[in-house]
Design a protein around this nucleic acid. Structure first.
Lengths: 205, 205, 205, 205
DNA sequence: TATGAATGAGCTTTCATTCAT
DNA sequence: AATGAATGAAAGCTCATTCAT
């Protein structure tokens, strides 16, 4: 019973910290503030996490795991390349509504602020999806669904670039504003999804 | 204790700081370290800049100005939509070779860590290019060069997203590594440029 | 790393700081030095006081409260004007033996260095005693104990001036030395008290 | 001709610094600001004065000299004890109108802020007047004009205490305000002078 | 085991002082 | 001789981290 409380607490800390880190960045966030917002003492955080950075990376892992699960499911369920892409795009849009903070964490590791090893992080986070996207495109190409004069990896890269920007545009303040500059203050998400998919499909095939 | 290299020194401080900020972010960078690397005393930095943030934003402005000049020229010189895009892509690739730090500053403002007003920053930095890209695509559409079933603003947005990712992929550690995961360690820039352009042109038309 | 002597420690900080401020003034005093002398870390001072100024004013308040209590008691217990004055003078002399630092704090606010609002400070510190002294003298005048050709407020003012100089002469280095110049190195306090009282009583009546 | 300018400049620096020191204290005053207000460069100040403290003490000397001249004249011209005291009191009041800053400097050395040797300062500044006042009172006593049951030095001390408080009450913000609390916002100087003299004369004789 | 007061390294920032020009 | 840019020591202050309770 105590164990359960702990587990709950641990999750609460993680969520609160993710929120804080996503909103203020690693350095402007403070352990004290996270502890207070989580309703625990500072000491408890240091019981679970070696230091601030460790908590940061735990948040990151948590976010990435959750994100990757959602996207993985979207990819797995798809019967075709187009459906996979449609699914991934849609999953992003839906997921962003409730999990801005996770996307923001994603963005934060792409910056230099944490001092993390970029190589290792990228490998861990991008490796799998890169392989999947590339392989799916390759397969589609062998079926003649994708143009031959482009490398599948390259197309996967472009696709993922657009997907990444979609993440950020739906969650990070700067990118949100930037999207508003392009598309106006009220962005119709259905249209956005449709046109993005269309843009990609034309670009690919 | 001398008033030599004022002009030169000032530029040196800016460059060094841009490097440091790009590499370590606003908070992990320290004025002391920037001063030491610039070969000046701490005091001299505070002569030119009110505080650390002011220096940061000066670096940002400097980077954005330089970047925007290069991209602006590439856009202006273009006779057609395709040429504009090719020009912009190529300018990025060439520019990235010598000015990684500028692109990195660009990336740093898209993160939350600086605490800057995202809305204002985006307006200042993205406003112009958004207008230009959209207008050029609109014009091309009226000539039948662009598909009718997509909004020009949306296409411009997708294009700029890909361009933005190109910036980061050529300059920020995480994105560099990520590109390597997709495209291998030795990325042939000419091929990348060509295929990106092709992807975009197909996506648009 | 312990939460012992909170109460005691807090008082110790206040006393040490009062000593330091009285001896060196607000600006020559340093938080670091006060912390070291108090046997606490710098951080702990900032736990209790928002900043250096807040500590300074806390010391001031503490001193003034203590001083005002002592003088208040002396005034309250007096049956006549003369006794009140004798009591106040004597209280000063006795109090000065153990609480030089408090008197010094008193002096420090009369200088411009703290940047405090002089008007507000004076009102807070002098207001009450001014009213009391004036009222007591007025009452005595109505009994014919005080000459009629002088305003009670004026007489109260002169009396308080002499009392104030007594404070300083018993506590602040410069005033101490000055008193020695006038009265020799060994000042007999009983004589001083008696003659000051006599001087005042003659001046008043 | 250059020499003259220098001399003038020197005086200007001294006056400006005295003003600044009197208003803000030694530590809150800055050499830069004094230089700017004097219309000279920082270097010029360091040509004349070894450091900030030296300038401070030069201002002090200048103030004290000027003050002592005025008071000395008032004392010399007096034919009797009462006239001397009336003259000194009046000189204070008149002098305060144009030379607040000098009185303020006087006050500043009585505080600990400068770190000056209090003993030496007091000797230099108070020595002479202590001797004069005491001697004049002694002479008057031998003529039967002063009560026998008080030491002349003690009386001189009390008198000088009241004079000192008059200085401060006419120039320093805190003391000004304090006087207003006792005497109201509009203090009639003629009345003040008269009543103070009366208070003293009764106190003495 | 959980707490949160205490620690102190290390940051930004100021400004008296120097000295090349 | 005068200038004022440059210096850098030293201050105030914050906050990640520790550990007595």
């Amino acid at each position: 019973m105590n164990q359960k409380l702990t587990e709950e607490k641990q999750k609460c800390i993680l969520e609160t910290a993710t929120e804080e880190f996503g909103e203020r960045g690693l350095f402007r966030s403070s352990i004290r503030s996270i502890a207070k917002k989580s309703g625990v003492s500072v000491g408890v955080i240091y019981k679970y996490y070696a230091d601030k950075e460790a908590l940061f990376f735990a948040c990151l892992d948590h976010s990435m795991e959750s994100l990757s699960e959602v996207l993985g499911k979207a990819a797995d369920e798809a019967a075709s390349l187009e459906e996979m892409m449609r699914g991934l795009i849609h999953a992003c849009v839906v997921y962003a509504r409730d999990h801005e903070a996770y996307f923001r964490m994603y963005h934060s590791i792409t910056s230099a602020e944490s001092g993390a090893d970029a190589g290792e992080m990228a490998e861990r986070i991008e490796g799998e999806s890169a392989a999947i996207y590339t392989s799916v495109i390759k397969k589609a190409r062998s079926k003649g669904l994708v143009k031959k004069d482009a490398e599948p990896a390259m197309l996967a890269f472009f696709f993922d670039n657009l997907l990444m920007m979609l993440h950020f545009s739906l969650s990070c303040d700067y990118y949100k504003k930037r999207m508003n500059i392009y598309l106006g203050d009220k962005v119709d998400e259905a249209t956005l999804e449709k046109q993005l998919l269309s843009f990609i499909m034309y670009g690919i095939s």
